[in-house]
Computed example of a mutant assay.
Amino acid sequence: MIAVQPLHTVFNKDQLFEAISPFYSIGKPVQTRFLSNGLNDTYAVDTDCGKYILRIYKHQWRTESAIRFELDLLTYLNNRMLPISYPIAREDGEWLTELDAPEGKRYAVLFTYADGIGKVDASTSATFGTSVAQLHLAMDHYTPKHERFELDTKHLLDEPLRQLLPFLQHRAADAQLVQEIADRLKLRLTAASGSTYNWGACHGDLHGWNVFHQEDGSLTHFDFDCCGIGWRAYDLSVFLWDRVHGNPDSSSFEDECWRRFLEAYTKERALSEEDLAIIPVFVAVRQIWLMGLHTGQSAVWGAWQDDGYFDGKLKFLTSWVNAQQL
């Protein structure tokens, strides 16, 4: 028999909730589901008192301090009556439950359930834009209590490139192209550092699907796992990126959902011309960040980043930077 160290454990969902539920006043579990193996593992549980979401952070994905930053931010927003999925404290007041997994220590956190469905159209985009502006207005006054990475050049470009470029060794021309594009983008971000660009707490993943909409027009934001202090223009750019990156030949802002989103946002919270002008830069940055995320997580998610993957991702990146003259 050979002993091999596992990288990632999927827990038995029923045993998991049997072990964790006594720490909370949430009633007796009735039905449990393993929803997704994403950046973290997400479970849903229905109890005789309601519905909840359990997130188990992957080993070494986020530090304890980084997780506590996220949870403190969510508690801050919930206390200001913002529509978010927020963490539920255990009966002893603690947020985190440590799990002894074969790969090492992992943290579990229970969250409120977000009702509704994911939907992106002109109407929901406007509602989303208004709500994101309200999030930013509230987060303008947030003072972090815990250390966490910033959504800066290092996090958005340098670290993703270190993960991505080794996967392009057999595509030398593309590796060089990505490096050249990243160098140009980095110059723009360096110029935007420490200046008048809006900087503050961000959701970090506002692509439009981390929010559920209900028929009455209300919504609930969730999944702040990518949050941090950073450029607000980047936070907004993620929605535009989601609207255009699936089209390799996309080269403009001509998207009704993006127009409605930005229009609604700026009615609630003003943006400077500088912040508006740098959004296309962050769309390209986001594309590199995504490729770095996929390749960096390949040991757990699988190395499905083949030539077909890079053909599509790089076609959009080059098309976008050329059209936007970046």
Rank of each mutant, 00 (worst) to 15 (best):
G116D: 10
A191E: 14
Y197C: 00
N198R: 15
A172P: 09
E150G: 01
Q176K: 14
D121P: 07
H170D: 13
A138Q: 06
T127Y: 06
H136E: 02
L165R: 11
A182H: 02
D174H: 13
E215K: 11
D216G: 05
Y197T: 03
R184K: 15
A191N: 07
E215W: 03
T124F: 07
A191F: 14
G116V: 00
K186Q: 10
D205W: 10
G208Y: 07
G194N: 09
R184V: 14
H213F: 15
T124D: 07
I181W: 04
A122N: 11
A122K: 13
E180H: 12
V211S: 02
E180G: 06
D115P: 03
D140A: 09
T143E: 13
R171F: 09
A192D: 08
G200P: 03
G204C: 08
A201D: 03
Y113R: 07
P144N: 04
Q169W: 09
A133G: 02
F149V: 04
A138V: 01
G208C: 06
H203N: 04
N210P: 08
K145P: 00
L161P: 12
Q163N: 15
S131H: 02
P160F: 12
G208F: 01
Q179T: 15
T124Q: 08
F212M: 14
A175Y: 00
D121C: 09
T124N: 08
R188W: 00
A173W: 05
A192L: 12
H213S: 11
H146R: 03
G118L: 00
L164V: 06
G200V: 02
D183I: 09
E150T: 13
V132T: 07
G118T: 12
T190I: 13
I117W: 12
R184C: 11
V178G: 00
L187M: 15
E159H: 14
P144H: 04
M139L: 13
I117M: 09
F111V: 01
F212T: 15
K186R: 08
N210G: 05
F167K: 08
A126N: 01
L161F: 08
M139F: 12
C202T: 13
T130F: 00
L151F: 05
A201M: 02
G116E: 10
G118W: 05
I117Q: 14
S193I: 03
T112M: 04
D174K: 10
C202F: 03
L156C: 05
V132G: 07
Y142W: 01
K145G: 11
Q169S: 14
V120G: 02
L187N: 14
H146T: 01
G118E: 10
H155A: 09
F128L: 13
G118C: 10
F149W: 10
